[in-house]
Design a protein around this nucleic acid. Structure first.
Lengths: 271, 271
DNA sequence: CAAATAGTGTCTCTAAGACAATATCAC
DNA sequence: GTGATATTGTCTTAGAGACACTATTTG
């Protein structure tokens, strides 16, 4: 028997298999305009959530995502699901781990590949997809409250979703987050969001994902405020500019009409 | 209809599902004794491969691994598979990505969660498991040959497995490796090994995984030689000792009888 | 001029890297 | 003493962080 005849007789149907999904934490910035037009608009990190229209967790907010289809990779699946939900192709896609606890989904054996992604500016109201009752951008707050305790707060108008998470380590030293019983999100999505945020912050610190939140040309002050919105860490402009200098190039263009000194526009360097 | 009755009627069987496996790059060090007993033994990084006893890729060398079982996480699956193959519980488990190209396995739709793991010293000959014809430790060479080209060489006695890989970036900037057609390993395992090695090296540079290759108490020179065996980068002892100092604590014990000055033994600090 | 942001210069401190020097054992 | 490794000290340089200062616009 050779390999060809082996494969022609081989049936993969004999083994029990899990369903495989992707869940995606889609991030964007919301620009908060000020009453005083001379102030720069401040930026808030926001995340896209959908309100579940069906059981399980009907009526609760959850991450967009869906089942892996035959013929696509998990990354392609994530991009497809984001596009179906937002009509936007994401600018980055960052792996946030595989979530495979057997009891994580009441429907059965379902493992999820989690991603963080960035689609730039949160402009329009997102449309709710087929099995979703609603879809909205939520402002994100994620902060350490105590030694290894975190508070995740997601706010949209008068809806406030709060989760308390503890930072844990596997016996192998890998860091993950474990949500408190009364998380206000469907499934284990609070934990996935926390992991995605941790990943996103790590990258933002290393100047790796901040460009995806801005158009091709941007000012350094904008870029710095993006980094601050994501990481919650502020540095003095002089130091930021020194560190970023290797990643960007000057253009000859400037901003105009902001009620203060114009700022030079920069472009990201090719990698 | 409430959630309970929805779930009791829900059948997950309606959707087509992939098979899910883990493949694990198990690393250990091989100690090369010298003819001159006064020389310290040098260390080589080695990886465990099994020779496939069944189609597909019968007779070719491959990573250990196996199908995810119901009731376990992918991490537990990886640990179980390593234990079945080596009778050793791994000391670390590092995610090396999800491999989900639809055509990566000729048996059908099979996606793999890849891990790098460390089991310390490669002492005994491993036993071949059920569907394996052989199992051996291969010495690892992985080096850049050219701008974004890498050569992976795995050697066991007179068996030499060579793969040429190019370093690629997804449109989202994620780095991965693509093997040349004539890789001498089963499936896409050359690519998985390259990713695992890149991950392992990154961690070794940050003093994150090197302790797992040594017993509880070790000399700083041993620790440095572990780092060098993995990363292929050497630094001067004085600088290594300064950088490692925050991660380790002195003991009162020393090595003896090595034909040169005794070395103080250290322990890893608790994290 | 005032308000606001844009952008530069400089000081200190730490960490990294290179290199030299000293210490201690077995034989 | 010789050969081998262990361990410490010091010099230089690069970078991070803090802080003060100057520049340019609109009203």
């Amino acid at each position: 028997m050779d390999e060809k005849s082996f494969l022609s007789e081989y049936s993969i149907e004999n083994y029990e298999r899990p369903s495989v999904t992707t869940d995606i934490a889609v991030f964007a910035l919301r620009y908060e305009e000020n009453e005083n037009y001379r102030l720069n608009s401040s930026k808030k990190l926001s995340i896209l959530l959908i309100k579940r229209g069906e059981y399980p967790f009907k009526g609760m907010w959850a991450l967009p995502g869906g089942f892996l289809r035959k013929g696509e990779t998990v990354e392609e699946c994530a991009v497809r699901e984001i596009f179906e939900e937002t009509s936007v192709k994401p600018l980055s896609l960052i792996s946030a781990g595989v979530f495979s606890k057997p009891d994580r989904d009441p429907r059965g054996w379902i493992i999820s590949n989690a991603f963080a992604s960035v689609i730039g500016k949160a402009e329009k109201n997102p449309e709710a997809g087929d099995d979703a009752a609603d879809a909205q951008w939520f402002d994100v707050t994620f902060e350490r409250t105590d030694e290894s305790m975190y508070r995740l707060k997601l706010v949209y108008e008068d809806t406030e979703l709060l989760s308390v998470l503890s930072e844990r380590k596997t016996s192998f030293g890998k860091i993950f987050f474990e949500a408190d019983e009364k998380s206000m999100l469907a499934f284990d999505h609070a934990e996935i969001i926390a992991s995605s945020l941790a990943e996103l912050r790590q990258r933002a610190k290393n100047f790796d994902v901040i460009f995806d939140f801005l158009p091709e040309k941007f000012t350094l002050t904008e870029l710095q405020s993006v980094q601050e919105a994501i990481t919650n860490i502020s540095v003095t402009p002089a130091n930021f500019r020194r560190k970023i200098s290797g990643y960007v190039s000057e253009t000859d263009e400037y901003t105009q009409g902001d009620g203060h000194r114009p700022a030079r526009l920069y472009k990201r360097n090719n990698l």
